[in-house]
Nucleic acid binder design. Structure first.
Lengths: 224, 224
DNA sequence: TAAAACCATCCAATCGTATTGTTTTTTTTC
DNA sequence: GAAAAAAAACAATACGATTGGATGGTTTTA
């Protein structure tokens, strides 16, 4: 039935609109990674997208609308990040677990943080510090995004008590922070070898603590 | 002898000039922390400093000059950071060492990273990613600043072989990165308690590795 | 025919910089 | 050592370019 449930298939106009919005957001991302937040202007985004000013203003009336939409676009991207293993629960073997975790850690850096889109997101994030209006528009989605990722990670653990979960979240937060900071550090005077060494060292510190919570009896590095 | 060696005491004009430059740089810092890089304009700095446009342009002809000088001003600040102990070498006792290190770690966060001036520096650093000209002007001083801090830290160790030093530098870099990332994370949805937990966890992971290099025999978490 | 998508142009405001003039300090010269 | 010339510090204003946003018209889709 073509029109059995109305609004189930997007109309041609809706498709067009969505494609246009996507193009604009992606152009904004390109602009942010290439020129930074301070130098990201409406006209520059327009030039990259190859559309007119009126088109942009039709979809996103103000620059703030465009930025909020772009942030949303960027935040929804990493949620596709795979968990430890494609198939659920093949992590009964400790060695498998460690390998899967190592892969996840590496993946987080290679495919999530150390990428153009994340640079763009970082530009927006830093800008929101001094832009309360934009901050308010993005904050909720941002917190949700983090929560989902953390939750997703924790679900790999069979049964997690409150204290263990708190520590895990702290470790995940630390991981985010370190990688984010490393992305910035990598801009100046950090050789590729030095960067690898830092990552190796960090993962070496992190891995046993993350794996430790699988056996509820042995909890390495317990806090308090 | 007042004029024994000429040009030893700064002339009145030089004093005036230096005071003006300092005022301008500090106003720029205020502007950066308050409004961010994108919203830091000449006129805003002028308003904060309370001087005329001509005055600024006399000391710093272009905005880039002002930013470079401000970055320099900010980079020279943290070098006053104290080492582990005020007096050299009172670290023979392991317990004293640990206490001194804990203090140093806490101090690095409280007095160096988690501050307005560092926020300002971070704004400039992120901006340099997409501003090659500014990047080039600042890069050397930036690298030097890091190197000095690292070197200063390593000097606390009596005799350090090459491998140990490499690991120490990786750990110090990781520390910088994590704290920098935490500063950004703290902007959104990170409770004060959660932040403390992350810091506590991180310091707990870091401390034994940093202290391990005092005894050249036992090297914890050795790499490769 | 109405609405959505898109385009071309215009607008006031602000950007960073250049220009010119005034005041203060330093240097030169008698 | 005081007057004159030079230079530095600072101020006021002007300038072209660009900013984000507004307006009115044209094409496409419903």
């Amino acid at each position: 039935m073509p029109t059995g449930q109305p609004a189930i298939e997007p109309s041609r106009q809706e498709q067009k609109s969505e494609r246009a919005r996507l193009l604009l957001c992606e152009s904004t991302v390109t602009c942010l990674t290439q020129y930074g937040y301070a130098e990201t202007s409406i006209s520059r985004v327009l030039a990259i997208a190859g559309v007119s000013k009126g088109a942009l203003q039709h979809h996103y009336p103000t620059k703030e609308d465009l930025m909020a939409a772009t942030a949303q676009h960027l935040l929804r991207r990493p949620l596709q990040q795979q968990p430890w293993s494609k198939q659920d629960r093949a992590l009964s073997d400790p060695a498998t677990r460690e390998a899967a975790l190592a892969k996840w850690l590496k993946n987080t850096w290679d495919k999530m943080i150390n990428t153009g889109p994340y640079q763009a997101l970082l530009e927006i994030l830093l800008a929101t510090r001094t832009d309360p209006v934009l901050h308010k528009r993005i904050n909720r989605e941002l917190e949700d995004s983090i929560r989902v990722i953390d939750e997703h990670f924790c679900q790999q653990y069979p049964d997690l008590n409150q204290a263990s979960k708190a520590q895990l979240q702290a470790l995940l937060c630390a991981n985010r922070c370190l990688l984010r900071g490393l992305l910035i550090e990598a801009q100046y005077g950090l050789t590729s070898a030095a960067q690898k060494l830092v990552l190796k060292q960090w993962w070496q510190m992190l891995t046993p603590l993350l794996l430790g919570h699988f056996d509820s009896t042995s909890q390495l590095g317990e806090t308090a």
